[in-house]
Simulated assay, not measured.
Amino acid sequence: MTTLPDRRTIAARPKRSAETVELERLPKKAARLKKNLAKRDAVLVAMGKTSASWNC
C-alpha cells in the first residue's frame, strides 16, 4: 500500500487565473451549444415544424 505524499515537501500546483479558466471553458460551451442547436433543428425538420417555429 502506498502512502500519501507529505504536503509540506511537494510543490503546490500553481493556480490558474479566472480569465484563463474562462477562456478554456468558453470554446467547450460554444461547441456544446452548437451541438444542441443542430440536434434541435434536426428534430424540428423531422417533425416538419421549422416554419411554424419562426412564425409565432
Rank of each mutant, 00 (worst) to 15 (best):
residue 53 S to L: 12
residue 38 A to T: 09
residue 25 R to K: 11
residue 22 E to L: 13
residue 2 T to H: 07
residue 27 P to V: 03
residue 40 R to T: 06
residue 38 A to R: 13
residue 55 N to V: 12
residue 21 V to R: 14
residue 26 L to R: 13
residue 47 M to G: 05
residue 32 R to P: 01
residue 38 A to H: 06
residue 21 V to K: 10
residue 47 M to L: 13
residue 11 A to S: 07
residue 50 T to H: 05
residue 25 R to W: 03
residue 56 C to W: 15
residue 7 R to Q: 13
residue 9 T to Y: 07
residue 26 L to S: 08
residue 6 D to F: 04
residue 12 A to P: 02
residue 3 T to P: 04
residue 28 K to W: 08
residue 23 L to S: 12
residue 31 A to W: 07
residue 11 A to Y: 03
residue 2 T to L: 14
residue 48 G to H: 03
residue 19 E to I: 14
residue 11 A to C: 04
residue 17 S to W: 03
residue 46 A to Q: 08
residue 24 E to P: 00
residue 29 K to C: 07
residue 34 K to P: 01
residue 4 L to E: 13
residue 37 L to C: 10
residue 12 A to K: 15
residue 48 G to M: 02
residue 10 I to M: 09
residue 21 V to N: 04
residue 56 C to G: 14
residue 53 S to Q: 12
residue 17 S to E: 02
residue 41 D to N: 06
residue 45 V to G: 02
residue 10 I to C: 02
residue 16 R to N: 06
residue 27 P to I: 03
residue 6 D to N: 15
residue 35 K to H: 11
residue 40 R to N: 04
residue 38 A to V: 05
residue 56 C to Q: 12
residue 24 E to D: 13
residue 14 P to K: 00
residue 50 T to C: 03
residue 36 N to R: 15
residue 29 K to M: 12
residue 6 D to T: 12
residue 30 A to N: 09
residue 38 A to F: 06
residue 39 K to V: 11
residue 5 P to Q: 03
residue 28 K to H: 13
residue 2 T to W: 08
residue 55 N to A: 11
residue 3 T to L: 13
residue 2 T to S: 13
residue 26 L to V: 14
residue 31 A to Y: 07
residue 16 R to D: 08
residue 40 R to P: 00
residue 8 R to G: 05
residue 46 A to S: 12
residue 51 S to F: 07
residue 13 R to Y: 10
residue 19 E to K: 15
residue 45 V to A: 03
residue 9 T to V: 08
residue 31 A to V: 13
residue 16 R to G: 03
residue 56 C to Y: 14
residue 20 T to E: 15
residue 23 L to H: 11
residue 52 A to H: 09
residue 6 D to S: 08
residue 14 P to M: 01
residue 43 V to N: 02
residue 2 T to D: 11
residue 22 E to W: 10
residue 16 R to V: 06
residue 38 A to G: 13
residue 25 R to Q: 09
residue 22 E to K: 03
residue 30 A to P: 00
residue 32 R to G: 08
residue 53 S to C: 11
residue 11 A to P: 01
residue 22 E to P: 01
residue 46 A to G: 15
residue 1 M to I: 05
residue 9 T to R: 13
residue 33 L to N: 05
residue 47 M to I: 01
residue 39 K to G: 03
residue 24 E to T: 07
residue 22 E to T: 11
residue 8 R to T: 12
residue 14 P to F: 00
residue 2 T to N: 07
residue 45 V to N: 00
residue 15 K to E: 04
residue 31 A to Q: 14
residue 44 L to C: 09
residue 28 K to G: 14
residue 23 L to G: 02
residue 37 L to V: 07
residue 8 R to L: 08
residue 12 A to N: 09
residue 11 A to W: 00
residue 4 L to R: 13
residue 14 P to I: 02
residue 56 C to F: 10
residue 15 K to Y: 04
residue 2 T to E: 11
residue 3 T to K: 08
residue 36 N to G: 12
residue 32 R to N: 13
residue 51 S to A: 15
residue 44 L to V: 02
